[in-house]
Design a protein around this nucleic acid. Sequence first.
DNA 1: ACGAGTATGGAAAACGTTGCTCAGCATAGA
DNA 2: TCTATGCTGAGCAACGTTTTCCATACTCGT
Lengths: 345, 345
Amino acid sequence: MDKPAPRRVTIIDVARHAQVSTTAVSKVLRNAYGASPAMRAKVQQAIAELGYRPSAAARGLRGQTYTIGVMIPELRNLFFADILDGITAQLAGTDYQVLIAPGCNGEKAEARVIDAMIDRSMDGLVLIAPVSAKTRLIEVARRVPTVVVGRHGSSPAYDSVADDDVAGAALVVDHLADLGHRRIAHIEHHETDRVRLAEMPNARRADGYREAMRRRGLAGFIDIASTSYTHDGGYRGAKELLSRAPRPTAIFAGADVVALGALEAIAEAGLSVPGDISVAGYDNSALASFGPISLTSVDQDGRQMGADAARLLVDRIADRDRRPVQVQLSPTLAVRRTTAAVSLE
Amino acid sequence: MDKPAPRRVTIIDVARHAQVSTTAVSKVLRNAYGASPAMRAKVQQAIAELGYRPSAAARGLRGQTYTIGVMIPELRNLFFADILDGITAQLAGTDYQVLIAPGCNGEKAEARVIDAMIDRSMDGLVLIAPVSAKTRLIEVARRVPTVVVGRHGSSPAYDSVADDDVAGAALVVDHLADLGHRRIAHIEHHETDRVRLAEMPNARRADGYREAMRRRGLAGFIDIASTSYTHDGGYRGAKELLSRAPRPTAIFAGADVVALGALEAIAEAGLSVPGDISVAGYDNSALASFGPISLTSVDQDGRQMGADAARLLVDRIADRDRRPVQVQLSPTLAVRRTTAAVSLE
DNA sequence: ACGAGTATGGAAAACGTTGCTCAGCATAGA
DNA sequence: TCTATGCTGAGCAACGTTTTCCATACTCGT
């Protein structure tokens, strides 16, 4: 068996092999100005022959690391996978490598993870649905180029990409109202923080729901269960709503996973969907389109959101003092088999 | 508005502030030998007061980066999320930070991603179900401590953690045979490479299926559709199997996602589950336990696999010449509502 | 033929850590 | 009292890049 670690090939080895200076090699690596085509070719060949790969650590000490960090609050939420696909697709062909920081539920874990990415001198950060205080986000964005996805409210420090959640909620309410429903209930994610009440998607969806209900003359039927955006939250929320008399004829869950929990509670109560009650979700995740479930859901086009985020981030890395941009995408409704005309009673 | 970047706090600032040398600070940071409690306290305080955080890039240049890289072939496979939970849980409380490299389907993308992690001088790698050639894996493992998860076959260079897929397949076949099934078909992931045929879980599951069928005296009923471990693969595989005469009374899909595709094809054919046909999957992912689906599935305990992988990796980082270890976990069967006694004909 | 301007390529100083070597200084043993 | 021994803490040289200068060697217009 040969030696375990034959020492790393460095830029110095390449320079020696190509009979040029390390400066020259560095220039070629970065496509920087001041290298003739002849030298460029010579260096490229030496790189290939030696199988040289630049050390990101050394690069990070001086310049860029060519690394983009993406914070994902919950790997199990398939919608985030769509966003990530958009990011990687947009970044394919560039020198950037995407790395994901996992499992940051809660403000404290989120802070640790963001710090870890900053410590690793990443070139840019994409924060998906962060829950941190706004001041904290601004502080982070001042240190490193940052794009915030899925949170409303502008900031002088970072770009943001979000879906128009108010419009998304309205799509659902209108769809259900058009089907003749009046007792349309909503399951929301409980929120207390004042800033988050204005910025988090869940709060906006609840606002949109209330607003749309009023617009349709259904103000009297507004009915909200306040739990959390989890499977269990949906289960408990639906149980609570079903216990009311008269019970709602339709439930708008704030997220697909919540809708699934609601479906489970409804099945347990011996009711049928959509015969007895209609259910709609939000996110149009892979689950929603799965045949046996076939959940009516609001589609956010996560891929597009991810692609926009990556584009904004690359632009901001190029020019840090650029004017911040807010992108807001319009959702559409994917109508499937969990919603139907209200049954005649 | 204040200055955008107030310059990084370095170990030198801390040393000056605490009136000690940088060496001393470094020692405290690493809990290294040779620092008195008094100095330790002084330095800790300076670190806290200045809000100092070590630069991973600079550390990486000299020693460790305190970063563990995890390669995940497909974010949408929820089973991998379980493995990741196990890894992060095991690593919680240590100084290691986990970073995930996404979207490495195919040997070429996988190679790029692994190189990217090596370039970033990560301290250790967890490769989940890698498809690379074995020589390549050994080469990687020689450069950086590596644990391979979900691939059989030992190596002198890396530790590995896998589920006993042969036993898992047998669990399913026995369960179905006990229910009276004889025409039990299997949907496998098509594999051509010779080494992978021996090492990849999909191949082992197919082997286990064949072996168990023979053991139960059902050799004559062995029936395999060879597609891929995807939703669509399950759909196509089931369609193919259903077209046979007589058609199978049970389908063992090699993965949960495959089972879901199969369920869709079965529903489309107007058949009922488990009335007309039983279906079982593999992985016991979150989907399988979801009420309305309730899929019988083999449980691999991904969390345990992840925890084992992390433990092995930390040990190997501590001692690179340690003897490689192979951990093999025994799967269990989660029986749910998609399997039932064969209907009398 | 001369000077100004323009490519081209190199030397050397960072960047923020870690680990090696070594000096100072008590304390213990002879 | 003198040396051997341990322990603390400091100085300094890596680590592998990037980047800022600077020195050439050309080109071109006069």
